[in-house]
């Protein structure tokens, strides 16, 4: 028996049904879909805008300054009479402040994550977690203030008399470490909490203590999530601007000494904009070359951390 066996007229004696839907409604539904798509496309346009503008202005810069000279040059005197644009001193400053920040944030962040995920009672957690979030909500300019007016003069200089200069990479790095600490802690905590309970039970079942379970079983199982957290925190530190602009000085570093001022890539951009630079000059374009380098570095780190995190998710599905 087939469909044709029931003519429409016989199906309850009603007129044939039209189920094709109202044209007006389908037009307006489609229009809404298109509008929403345009909204979504906006973020792609933003990305394209960033890339095109950075590439365009940087290309103009590299017409004057050869790319290898920029990438491998060891002298940065952009705002002087005979400017040289070797970016390595700025990269060194960025690396130094970032490393110090990680030195502060990683141990504290990891221990906090272990405590919050494995040890804390729900009640304790409900107090501590919001305070971490508050710390994350403090603007970076405030950390910069803290580095400049407290960490250097009240902490570092009294502890090591005569060692630290008023503007130094160490204070900026420490403040940056406090800034990225909440991020490191909460992302790592998410990774730890993602580890299935059966694994913990297995460890306890063998007679492991809480510490052995947390550190030797749960932590290694969450390692890719923690690495992702580490990379993201690092990327945040690399792109941070106001702390280094205030505390790390405006002198491109020759060496690796954190007790001295070390200008970073972001610090240079700030320095130019708080002074007077002519639009279209080579100094102006150097900003975009530095910005492009900064963008590429953070982008690479973000993609890397997503890749690592995605691998983590696969492990437990």
């Amino acid at each position: 028996m087939t469909v044709r066996d029931i003519p429409a007229s016989e199906s309850g004696g009603r007129p044939p049904l039209d189920l094709s839907g109202s044209r007006n409604r389908s037009v307006s539904e489609t229009a809404i879909g298109v509008i929403l798509f345009l909204f979504a496309a906006f973020s792609v346009v933003t990305t394209i805008g960033i890339v095109v503008i950075l590439l365009y202005e940087a290309a103009l810069f590299f017409q004057d300054i050869a790319l290898p000279k920029f990438l491998f040059g060891n002298t940065w005197t952009a705002l002087f009479q005979d400017p040289e644009f070797g970016v390595l001193p700025l990269v060194r400053g960025t690396l130094m402040t970032t490393l110090i920040a990680l030195f502060v944030a990683v141990p504290l962040g990891l221990m906090s994550a272990i405590y919050l995920s494995e040890y804390a009672s729900p009640r304790m957690r409900s107090y501590l977690k919001p305070s971490l979030e508050l710390l994350a909500g403090v603007p970076t300019i405030v950390y910069g203030y803290f580095a400049l007016t407290f960490i250097t003069p009240q902490l570092l200089q009294p502890l090591f008399p005569g060692v630290f200069q008023p503007l130094n990479a160490a204070s900026a790095g420490i403040a940056m470490g406090i800034m990225i600490l909440p991020m490191m802690a909460s992302l790592s905590e998410d990774a730890l909490r993602g580890v299935p309970n059966s694994l913990r039970e297995a460890a306890y079942g063998l007679g492991a203590t809480k510490l052995e379970t947390s550190v030797r079983v749960v932590l290694p199982a969450a390692v890719s999530g923690i690495i992702a957290a580490f990379i993201l925190s690092m990327s945040r530190a690399v792109g941070e601007t106001m702390i280094v602009a205030l505390a790390s000085g405006a002198r491109p570093a020759n060496g690796w000494s954190p007790v001295e001022g070390m200008q970073t890539m972001t610090g240079y951009i700030m320095q130019v904009f708080t002074g007077d630079v002519v639009y279209g000059s080579v100094q102006f374009r150097s900003l975009y070359a530095v910005g492009l380098l900064l963008f590429l570095m953070t982008l690479a780190m973000n993609i890397l951390s997503q890749w690592v995190a995605r691998r983590f998710r696969k492990d437990y599905q």
């Binding site: 960033i50 975009y288 963008f295 953070t298 780190m301 973000n302 997503q306």
Partner: peptide, 21 residues
């Protein structure tokens, strides 16, 4: 992916975008 990468772009780079655009 684009959105999560945008969220990781340093704020000063947004400044450079805003200035030029």
């Amino acid at each position: 992916t684009n959105i999560s990468n945008l969220s990781g772009v340093p704020s000063v780079v947004y400044g450079l975008l805003g200035l030029a655009l």
